[in-house]
Design a protein around this nucleic acid. Structure first.
Lengths: 209, 209
DNA sequence: ACCTGAACACCGTTCAAGT
DNA sequence: ACCTGAACACCGTTCAAGT
């Protein structure tokens, strides 16, 4: 009787344990090798236990995608604060942070931006979290315009353009196969090309007269 | 005896029938709802029959992805021929073709560019087919440089930048959810924003004092 | 309240066997 | 040569039952 040492069923916080096991499994096996049953096994519970905490597999993956969006937002926030008066540097360094996240957590990037993100119906507060990454970029553009560094015009249109550039670069070279094919297999080479691409976004690829 | 009318087992060309059933299933159910057993059922054969023609599920998906790459290459080729002397128009219209492919065949785009494309190990001739889409873009840049329309510098670096821009735009707005969120739910609105983004790529977003 | 174990309907893949 | 049917090891999900 009284307080026994014996654990009630398992460790105290299954929700968190599932998320952590999920991240690890994701990084080991990728999105396609990811199964709810394996996550449960790694967390030391039966395969039905996760359903106490997540409506289904998609909801667990959504939680992991949101983790990625938070990381990305933090990364962008950090580089903005590191160069508070320099929108150009903020833009280039945000791009580096974006690419780095995709390189370090490719499977989570797949969740954030891949085909499963179509299935994931974010509720409003979740949408907000996912959107904060874009807002970070849009704010850089907005402040850059106010400072007279970027051209005038609809901020949203500039931000979409910058975002597409960075997003496309990151996703194109997510696969090591493509990095090798373009001689960008080393991190410095990749970062240098990204820097050049950002520079071209800034100054254009069209010859001026 | 002699030639009977009775079909040997099924329709004559199972390989082609599997591809066609595959495209339809893909467009109905998306990449995640795609199963080899269902493709076989739709082609009217047993679930094991596809293994006579494809090593496994991935090989069928690879064949479908290659179909997408061929379509994209054709699309780019067509717009180049439609404006043979105008690299700028070629670039913008290629972008439109790229985006259109992703919008019209989202599930095939997922195969071409999504996380499954990491699993897909292209052999050399297949790589070449997949790469032709990029080569089309790179050639536009190269000819534009020769014509003095685009800035000088490494063609590959310019091409990567343009490609990233177009690719990022196409993938960002592949989901109707995001198109709606940015007021780009109609096709004209989306095309207009793409045109603007291409324009910014050409002339830059940095203010020239 | 929280978890288990059996059950169901689906997978991908393999293989002996049929024509 | 081409296809079938049974079999195996895996899924995601549900649900009555246990503590």
């Amino acid at each position: 009787m009284s307080e026994t040492i014996k654990k009630p069923y398992h460790h105290s916080n299954l929700y968190q344990a599932l998320l952590e096991a999920g991240v690890r499994l994701l990084e080991e096996k990728g999105v396609n090798g990811f199964s709810l049953r394996e996550v449960a096994k790694r967390a030391g519970v039966s395969h039905a236990a996760p359903y106490r905490h997540f409506k289904n597999k998609s909801e667990l993956l959504k939680a992991l995608a949101l983790y990625g969006f938070r990381k990305l937002t933090e990364g962008i926030q950090a580089v903005v604060e590191a160069a508070p008066e320099d929108p150009e540097t903020q833009l280039v360094e945000s791009a580096q942070a974006y690419v780095e996240l995709v390189m370090v957590h490719p499977a989570i990037a797949d969740l954030m931006f891949g085909d499963r993100s179509a299935d994931m119906e974010f509720c409003d507060p979740e949408q907000a979290i996912a959107m904060n990454s874009f807002s970070g970029l849009a704010n850089i553009i907005a402040r850059g315009q106010q400072a007279g560094v970027f051209i005038e015009g609809e901020t949203l249109e500039l931000a979409i353009t910058a975002w597409a550039q960075v997003h496309g670069f990151a996703l194109l070279f997510r696969s090591s196969q493509k990095r090798e094919r373009f001689g960008l297999e080393t991190e410095p080479a990749l970062k240098l090309q990204l820097r050049k691409s950002c520079e071209m976004l800034l100054t254009g690829i069209k010859r001026t007269e």
